[in-house]
Structure formats: C-alpha cells, structure tokens
C-alpha cells in the first residue's frame, strides 16, 4: 500500500487545475466556463489543504479552503447573474458572440 505524500496531492490539484483551465479555454457556453472556474478553484483548495498538512501545520490552509468554497458560491451567483444578463442582451450565452470589448 502506497502512503499518499504531498506530491500525490499536488498531482491531483494540477490535474484538476488543468482540466478546469481547459474547460474555461474551450467551452463556448458561458455556464460551462463557470463550471471550469469551479474546478480551478477546487484545485486551489486541494493545494491549500495539502500544503497545510504537509508543510505549514495548523489550520490556516483549511480556513483558506473554506473561504474559497464560500467565494466560489458567491462567484457562481454573480457569474450566473451575468450569464443571465448576457443572455437577455445577446439572446445567447455563447461567449464568442460577446465581443463588445474588442478593439
């Protein structure tokens, strides 16, 4: 039986981040992007907790994890509101249609 070490956790975090990042980059659906962002945030959470456990000790890492979860909830709420607003304006939630910031 292999004892899980820091590296294993970091690999999981990195995988999560990469998956989330790819999701953000490739999804044209705004909601999909939001979901990708959730994955990235959770990758960060894994890292916080793992570093806290193996390196720093104490509770600071866990606390950050909790904060991030809260933040993710709030972000999801704001994000979805924006998506709704975009949909009302453009009748679409495809981000490639939303290019008002161009040039």
């Amino acid at each position: 039986m292999i004892t899980p070490t820091l590296v294993h956790f970091l690999i999981v975090g990195a995988l999560l981040f990469t998956l989330g990042f790819i999701c953000v980059l490739t999804r044209r659906n705004a909601v999909g992007i939001l979901m990708g962002v959730e994955l990235i945030l959770n990758a960060a959470n894994v890292n916080f907790v793992a570093f806290n456990h193996y390196v720093a000790g104490g509770l600071a890492g866990q606390m950050f994890g909790v904060f991030v979860i809260v933040l993710a909830a709030a972000e999801a709420a704001v994000g979805l509101a924006i998506v709704v607003s975009i949909y009302q304006t453009f009748r679409s939630i495809d981000v490639t249609d939303v290019d008002l910031m161009r040039e």
Partner: peptide
C-alpha cells in the same frame, strides 16, 4: 489593437 479581440478566451491563451 487587432490583438484586442474582446474574446476572453484569447486573452487567456
């Protein structure tokens, strides 16, 4: 200014 596509994903690239 052509670089400024307005597509968030491009920026991320």
């Amino acid at each position: 200014r052509r670089l400024q596509t307005g597509h968030i994903q491009n920026y991320l690239y």
